[in-house]
């Protein structure tokens, strides 16, 4: 029997900001073609974990491997080819204000071409490609000429998703994809994410504190608490995990092992 190598493998990841320990030895395996959702309360280090994996933040210690290659020891230039295989949807879209929607969508494609990691595109070709991608996320290609500030929050998220999937990445990251959206738009975004990940065959890591979103997106769910991944399991077991910390969190109870510093 052969054992499959994880697409993303994290061991003993630690990160502290002064005396505050945010990640205290995170271990995580994400298999190729699967979606892993990290849940956890505010300030538990979900975003820090994502930033460490993306190389936007250097961990204090520990190992992050992608396809068996250690990422923490690579220079920014050595990481470039790996970054070209990664797509990221930021919490608030993080669209570039100074560019139009279509320029945002194809920004990564143009950048990869400039760096020699992708085929060259003329602006006309890029605009056409942006139209196709916008259609893929359920938007009218005509919005390509608009500025991001002219779009609603949900539309900005969809444009961000189109930008994330533009280069057909092998790995996708989603930072709080449904935050700030109404439940219907949240479900739409989750559906698009699940659809894109399935069609591209990508490996995905999402962080969220939206339980419905975690169940819709994830093949596996894990909970980050006090700097460690204290539980992981199938989304269907999220509400009856048998772990008191997870149960308190998923059911939104004030009483339990998680202490909330709010006066009653």
């Amino acid at each position: 029997m052969t054992q499959q190598t994880p697409k993303i493998r994290i061991r003993g990841l630690k990160k502290a900001f002064g005396p505050k320990v945010v990640l205290d030895g995170v271990d995580l395996d994400v298999m190729g073609g699967t979606s892993f959702v990290v849940i956890g309360g505010s300030g538990t280090g979900k975003s820090v974990l994502l930033r460490c994996i993306l190389g936007l933040m250097a961990p204090d210690s520990g190992s992050i491997e992608i396809d068996g290659v250690e990422m923490t020891t690579l220079s920014a230039r050595q990481r470039e080819p790996y970054m070209a295989r990664i797509g990221m949807l930021f919490q608030n879209g993080a669209l570039f204000d100074s560019l139009s929607v279509w320029e945002n969508v194809t920004f990564g494609l143009m950048a990869a071409a400039r760096n020699g990691h992708g085929p060259r595109l003329t602006r006309a070709q890029a605009r056409e490609r942006a139209g196709t991608l916008l259609e893929q996320v359920g938007m009218d290609p005509a919005v390509g000429g608009l500025s991001p500030s002219e779009l609603s929050g949900g539309m900005q998220k969809r444009v961000g998703l189109a930008r994330a999937i533009a280069a057909r990445p092998e790995i996708l990251f989603f930072d709080e994809p449904t935050t700030g959206l109404d439940p219907i738009m949240g479900a739409v975004i989750d559906g698009l994410i699940a659809d894109c990940v399935r069609k591209l065959g990508s490996t995905a890591i999402a962080i969220t504190h939206d339980m419905a979103s975690a169940q819709r997106i994830g093949d596996q769910v894990g909970m980050l608490y006090e700097g460690r991944l204290i539980w992981q399991g199938a989304p269907s077991t999220l509400f009856n995990s048998g772990n008191p910390v997870v149960d308190q969190f998923t059911h939104g109870r004030r009483e339990g092992p998680i202490k909330v510093d709010v006066p009653t």
Partner: peptide, 21 residues
């Protein structure tokens, strides 16, 4: 103001993830 706004709205991090220094 422009670069600062890009920093606090994650646009600078987005550049890094889009193969752009």
């Amino acid at each position: 103001a422009e670069i600062g706004t890009m920093r606090v709205t994650d646009q600078i991090d987005a550049l890094s993830t889009l193969s752009t220094n």
